[in-house]
Design a protein around this nucleic acid. Sequence first.
RNA 1: GGUCCGGUAGCUCAGCUGAAUAGAGCAGCUGCCUUCUAAGCAGCAGGUCAUUGGUUUGAAUCCAAUCCGGAUCACCA
Length: 661
Amino acid sequence: MVFADTTRRETTIFAATINNNRITLAEMSISDQIRMASKNTLEKLYSLSIDESNIQINETKPEFEGDYTLVLFSFLKHLKKSPDQLGREIGDELVANNPNLLSGFNIIKGFLNLTVNDSYWIDFLQVNYADPGFGKKKSSGKKVMVEYSSPNTNKPLHLGHLRNNFLGLSIAEILRANGAGVTKTCIVNDRGIHICKSMLAWQKYANGATPQSTGIKGDHFVGDYYVRFENDLKIQAQPIIDRIKRNELSGFEGNELSDLKKWLTALQRETNKEKIEKLNDEIKEIARNHTAIMAEAKQMLRNWEAGDKEVVELWEKMNGWVYDGFAITYNRIGSDFDKIYYESNTYLLGKDIVKEGLDKGVFYKKEDGSVWIDLTADGLDEKLVMRRDGTSVYITQDIGLAEQKFNEYKPSESIYVVGDEQNYHFKVLKLIAEKIKIPGAEGIYHLSYGMVELPTGRMKSREGTVVDADDLIDEMVSIAGRHTEELGKVKDFNESELKELYDTIGLGALKFFLLRVDPKKRMIFNPEESIDFHGFTGPFVQYTHARIKSILRKENAVSSRFPTAIGTAVSSLLKLEKGLIVKLEQYTAIVEQAAIEHNPSVLAIYAFELAKTFNTFYTEHSVMNAESEEKKQLRLQLCEMTANVIASAMGLLGIKVPERM
RNA sequence: GGUCCGGUAGCUCAGCUGAAUAGAGCAGCUGCCUUCUAAGCAGCAGGUCAUUGGUUUGAAUCCAAUCCGGAUCACCA
């Protein structure tokens, strides 16, 4: 490619002037070309130098004639001309200098509406229609790490994990499509008090039961014992809470004792409902920590850390069950990882970091031996990085892991797909990493996403209001099956074909539903709405794809060589034909935008709009019975390219598209 | 209390690096299957873009204040 290593800006100038070179043109979006041409025109006519980011090119509103609109208002103050006169001068110059690109213009108020040559759109279609990789970039050599999913091994995955997994998978695909080499990773939280809870309950109640002996999926099996533990804990905590409330505080000492006294007196005076609830929660927390069963769990954790053979064996056995269960779910939703980190291996990381930070004077030691960093100058708080007993905390482990990731993979960007309740954590993580100059610190990016809530409110595992991932997927798939059966369009499918189709549709619906919303926003998961397969949904887009494929299949049966080049035989486009090409042309920019914003929802919205645009075209114009053979070929190309782009866009969301449905 | 995020149609969401009458989907109401898949298409109805002030030729979009909702500020992870 001649201009391959020129800058974007330089390429643009070539494209705007040498516009009979189609290959070069394909390198840049049409709106960017118009933007650059406008910039050049302003310079040439008025010696006015305006940064391209200040030149507004919008899609022309459907009620006006034209394809793209140059907004003139901002130039008016620099040039003392009427909008009409200015528009005419710019329009004439633009069209004269870019005869292949632009065919005409009109001016309404301060808007210069430009019409792109039909032959230009047709050329664009000719060049790209058969390319399944349209919109994607070649490898740039950039390396990115995406950490996502990161489950706990004490309970099965739920709806929140699904949003995380879908986001992680999608962002990995999106970055790959933009030329990055992507390593998908996951940090498994396989150690800690929560695991011990499940282990302890299993010891007490299972009588040697296993997932195999009970037929229960491993992660659910272990999760059931976690719930069992929590129930016992609740029962044991209640009398202690009652005792505290009666002001019987024997057995408490130190900070706990003084805190309890403080809260109890505060409770007597407090009238604010929320504050009362908060105080009660604090008391409950202390009571929970004073139960016999909690003491057992803590002892178990100590034993685990000491390497107690029996505990470690049990831990390995139960984690193994959970991994077996997760594997099934991951396989079903398409999650996979190039590298898995286990917290049991990384939780000691960070010790060196602490030493390094102390040496560099970034950290400081308090009298009790604990180590801190003062972030008040950055508008944050003081943050503990090492406990007084010398063990590292979450943030320190994470810095250690960040360093390890960089050492192993050297990514220029390291993305963490983690819920927005940890915004503060990642802000601190990046800041500390930068302060102690961990390599790759600047590349840390927290892809923060909002909580998934139910119409009834927040999901709480303690209250049993979580939506289980496996249940939800089963439900979606079975609804997809029922729906498909009712429509009766695939009666000739065999059993495995049907199963695959139901999975594709059910999972497609679920993924699309969770990805169509801006990640950073909290979202409400309404089960009734999520199983709707009409409108702005995955199945709608999938259906459009299947519809197109049906046309192509039928045409293929008649003629084996289609679509053929149409050359110059077709020189003008109907409105809906052009509208579809315009939409297709924007795909490249959308793929780029999704990566820049780390936001798959722009692709979901685009895929829906494209499908909608196609369906409108489809009902108005026949492909098979087009007005002429040339038109038919053009429309077949349109069909093929639309199918390709739909499949590609959905692929970037991690969603499959069926050939028939 | 500090910090951060959000408040757009009955509901769920786009639009937020300012620009032409604020867009979708769902729900409601009308039409359209003898022609390439009706999981579709066309249309009707539905809005003081939380409130108030400011900047601007122009504000849902930028700024300030206020109100409402959420997250977070652990020697938990």
